[in-house]
Protein backbone atom coordinates (compact mmCIF):
# COMPACT_ATOMS: atom_id res chain seq x y z
CA UNK A 1 0.00 0.00 0.00
CA UNK A 2 2.05 2.98 -1.32
CA UNK A 3 -0.39 5.78 -0.44
CA UNK A 4 -2.85 4.36 2.04
CA UNK A 5 -6.45 5.36 1.46
CA UNK A 6 -9.19 5.01 4.06
CA UNK A 7 -11.11 2.34 2.14
CA UNK A 8 -8.08 0.05 1.90
CA UNK A 9 -7.19 0.76 5.52
CA UNK A 10 -10.72 -0.11 6.66
CA UNK A 11 -10.68 -3.35 4.70
CA UNK A 12 -7.32 -4.38 6.07
CA UNK A 13 -7.64 -3.28 9.69
CA UNK A 14 -11.33 -3.35 10.62
CA UNK A 15 -11.18 -6.87 12.07
CA UNK A 16 -8.01 -6.15 14.04
CA UNK A 17 -9.41 -2.90 15.46
CA UNK A 18 -12.71 -4.51 16.43
CA UNK A 19 -10.94 -7.54 17.98
CA UNK A 20 -8.77 -5.28 20.12
CA UNK A 21 -11.68 -3.12 21.28
CA UNK A 22 -13.87 -6.17 21.94
CA UNK A 23 -11.17 -7.56 24.24
CA UNK A 24 -11.28 -4.30 26.21
CA UNK A 25 -14.94 -3.27 26.47
CA UNK A 26 -17.88 -5.37 27.58
CA UNK A 27 -20.65 -3.95 25.43
CA UNK A 28 -21.05 -4.82 21.75
CA UNK A 29 -22.64 -1.47 20.98
CA UNK A 30 -19.81 0.39 22.73
CA UNK A 31 -17.28 -1.72 20.81
CA UNK A 32 -18.91 -0.90 17.48
CA UNK A 33 -19.17 2.80 18.33
CA UNK A 34 -15.53 2.89 19.36
CA UNK A 35 -14.54 1.11 16.17
CA UNK A 36 -16.28 3.84 14.16
CA UNK A 37 -14.51 6.49 16.24
CA UNK A 38 -11.16 4.89 15.45
CA UNK A 39 -11.67 4.99 11.69
CA UNK A 40 -12.98 8.55 11.86
CA UNK A 41 -9.76 9.55 13.60
CA UNK A 42 -7.67 7.54 11.16
CA UNK A 43 -9.33 9.39 8.29
CA UNK A 44 -8.85 12.78 9.98
CA UNK A 45 -5.20 12.14 10.76
CA UNK A 46 -4.23 10.21 7.65
CA UNK A 47 -2.61 13.26 6.06
CA UNK A 48 -0.27 13.53 9.06
CA UNK A 49 0.78 9.85 9.03
CA UNK A 50 4.53 9.52 8.58
CA UNK A 51 5.59 6.06 7.44
CA UNK A 52 9.20 6.76 8.46
CA UNK A 53 8.15 7.01 12.12
CA UNK A 54 5.88 3.98 12.48
CA UNK A 55 4.40 1.16 10.45
CA UNK A 56 0.79 1.80 9.46
CA UNK A 57 -0.47 -1.05 11.65
CA UNK A 58 1.38 0.30 14.68
CA UNK A 59 -0.02 3.79 14.02
CA UNK A 60 -3.59 2.48 13.79
CA UNK A 61 -3.03 0.39 16.93
CA UNK A 62 -1.92 3.54 18.76
CA UNK A 63 -5.09 5.40 17.70
CA UNK A 64 -7.21 2.40 18.72
CA UNK A 65 -5.54 2.12 22.10
CA UNK A 66 -5.99 5.83 22.78
CA UNK A 67 -9.69 5.64 21.86
CA UNK A 68 -10.16 2.86 24.43
CA UNK A 69 -8.33 4.91 27.07
CA UNK A 70 -10.52 7.95 26.28
CA UNK A 71 -13.63 5.76 26.47
CA UNK A 72 -12.72 4.60 29.96
CA UNK A 73 -11.92 8.15 31.08
CA UNK A 74 -15.30 9.38 29.82
CA UNK A 75 -17.48 6.52 30.98
CA UNK A 76 -15.77 5.43 34.17
CA UNK A 77 -13.79 8.39 35.48
CA UNK A 78 -13.76 6.99 39.00
CA UNK A 79 -12.29 3.66 37.97
CA UNK A 80 -8.60 3.08 37.59
CA UNK A 81 -7.50 2.47 34.05
CA UNK A 82 -6.58 -1.07 33.15
CA UNK A 83 -2.97 -1.34 34.28
CA UNK A 84 -2.33 -3.61 31.32
CA UNK A 85 -2.78 -0.76 28.83
CA UNK A 86 0.66 0.59 27.89
CA UNK A 87 1.05 4.30 28.58
CA UNK A 88 1.49 6.83 25.78
CA UNK A 89 5.25 6.90 25.99
CA UNK A 90 5.46 3.13 25.95
CA UNK A 91 3.45 2.35 22.87
CA UNK A 92 6.10 2.11 20.23
CA UNK A 93 9.81 1.73 20.53
CA UNK A 94 10.13 -0.45 17.47
CA UNK A 95 9.11 -3.75 19.08
CA UNK A 96 5.49 -3.65 17.99
CA UNK A 97 5.93 -5.76 14.89
CA UNK A 98 4.60 -9.13 13.80
CA UNK A 99 8.18 -10.43 13.80
CA UNK A 100 8.53 -9.66 17.50
CA UNK A 101 5.26 -11.45 18.26
CA UNK A 102 6.55 -14.48 16.37
CA UNK A 103 9.79 -14.29 18.36
CA UNK A 104 7.77 -14.17 21.58
CA UNK A 105 5.75 -17.21 20.47
CA UNK A 106 8.96 -19.14 19.77
CA UNK A 107 10.38 -18.16 23.17
CA UNK A 108 7.14 -19.09 24.96
CA UNK A 109 7.05 -22.47 23.29
CA UNK A 110 10.35 -23.37 24.99
CA UNK A 111 8.80 -22.89 28.45
CA UNK A 112 7.24 -25.68 30.49
CA UNK A 113 3.44 -25.55 30.42
CA UNK A 114 3.18 -24.23 33.98
CA UNK A 115 5.40 -21.22 33.26
CA UNK A 116 3.71 -20.60 29.92
CA UNK A 117 0.37 -20.53 31.73
CA UNK A 118 1.57 -17.97 34.27
CA UNK A 119 2.85 -15.69 31.51
CA UNK A 120 -0.39 -15.87 29.49
CA UNK A 121 -2.55 -15.37 32.57
CA UNK A 122 -0.44 -12.43 33.75
CA UNK A 123 0.28 -10.54 30.55
CA UNK A 124 -2.51 -11.51 28.13
CA UNK A 125 -5.39 -11.99 30.58
CA UNK A 126 -4.11 -9.27 32.90
CA UNK A 127 -4.60 -11.29 36.08
CA UNK A 128 -2.64 -10.42 39.24
CA UNK A 129 -0.28 -13.07 40.65
CA UNK A 130 -2.54 -13.56 43.69
CA UNK A 131 -5.39 -14.63 41.40
CA UNK A 132 -3.09 -16.80 39.27
CA UNK A 133 -1.85 -18.55 42.43
CA UNK A 134 -5.41 -19.47 43.40
CA UNK A 135 -6.26 -20.63 39.89
CA UNK A 136 -3.20 -22.88 39.75
CA UNK A 137 -3.47 -24.17 43.32
CA UNK A 138 -0.10 -22.71 44.27
CA UNK A 139 1.03 -20.44 47.06
CA UNK A 140 1.61 -16.80 46.15
CA UNK A 141 5.33 -17.22 46.87
CA UNK A 142 5.65 -20.25 44.60
CA UNK A 143 3.76 -18.45 41.84
CA UNK A 144 5.96 -15.40 42.11
CA UNK A 145 9.10 -17.57 41.93
CA UNK A 146 7.81 -19.38 38.85
CA UNK A 147 6.82 -16.04 37.30
CA UNK A 148 10.34 -14.69 37.82
CA UNK A 149 11.83 -17.89 36.37
CA UNK A 150 9.60 -17.55 33.33
CA UNK A 151 10.68 -13.94 32.81
CA UNK A 152 14.35 -14.92 32.99
CA UNK A 153 13.90 -17.77 30.53
CA UNK A 154 12.04 -15.50 28.12
CA UNK A 155 14.66 -12.79 28.48
CA UNK A 156 17.39 -15.27 27.51
CA UNK A 157 15.38 -16.81 24.67
CA UNK A 158 14.53 -13.44 23.14
CA UNK A 159 18.02 -12.01 23.39
CA UNK A 160 19.63 -15.07 21.77
Amino acid sequence: MNSPNIADIYTEYHTKVLSYITARVNSRSDAEDLCSDVFEKVQLKLSTYDSTKAALGTWIYSITRNCVIDFYRRSRPSEELDEQLPSDDEVDDGILRDETLTELAAALSTLPDELKTIIVYRYYDGRPLTEIAKMMGLSYGATKLRHNSALELLRRAMSA
Binding site: L96, T117, Y123, L151
Partner: peptide, 28 residues
Protein backbone atom coordinates in the same frame (compact mmCIF):
# COMPACT_ATOMS: atom_id res chain seq x y z
CA UNK B 1 10.93 -7.60 30.50
CA UNK B 2 7.56 -7.10 32.20
CA UNK B 3 6.90 -3.85 30.32
CA UNK B 4 7.95 -5.51 27.07
CA UNK B 5 5.55 -8.42 27.64
CA UNK B 6 2.75 -6.00 28.59
CA UNK B 7 3.27 -4.09 25.34
CA UNK B 8 3.56 -7.20 23.19
CA UNK B 9 0.54 -9.02 24.61
CA UNK B 10 -1.55 -5.86 24.31
CA UNK B 11 -0.41 -5.47 20.70
CA UNK B 12 -1.26 -9.17 20.13
CA UNK B 13 -4.92 -8.33 20.81
CA UNK B 14 -4.70 -6.05 17.78
CA UNK B 15 -2.31 -7.91 15.51
CA UNK B 16 -3.54 -11.47 16.15
CA UNK B 17 -0.24 -13.20 15.36
CA UNK B 18 -1.25 -16.80 14.64
CA UNK B 19 1.72 -18.51 16.29
CA UNK B 20 1.28 -16.55 19.50
CA UNK B 21 -2.52 -16.90 19.46
CA UNK B 22 -2.10 -20.66 19.16
CA UNK B 23 -0.12 -20.71 22.40
CA UNK B 24 -2.60 -18.41 24.16
CA UNK B 25 -5.53 -20.56 23.03
CA UNK B 26 -3.82 -23.78 24.12
CA UNK B 27 -3.18 -22.35 27.61
CA UNK B 28 -6.84 -21.34 27.89
Amino acid sequence: MEKKLTKLFDYQKFAGNKALQGIIDSVH
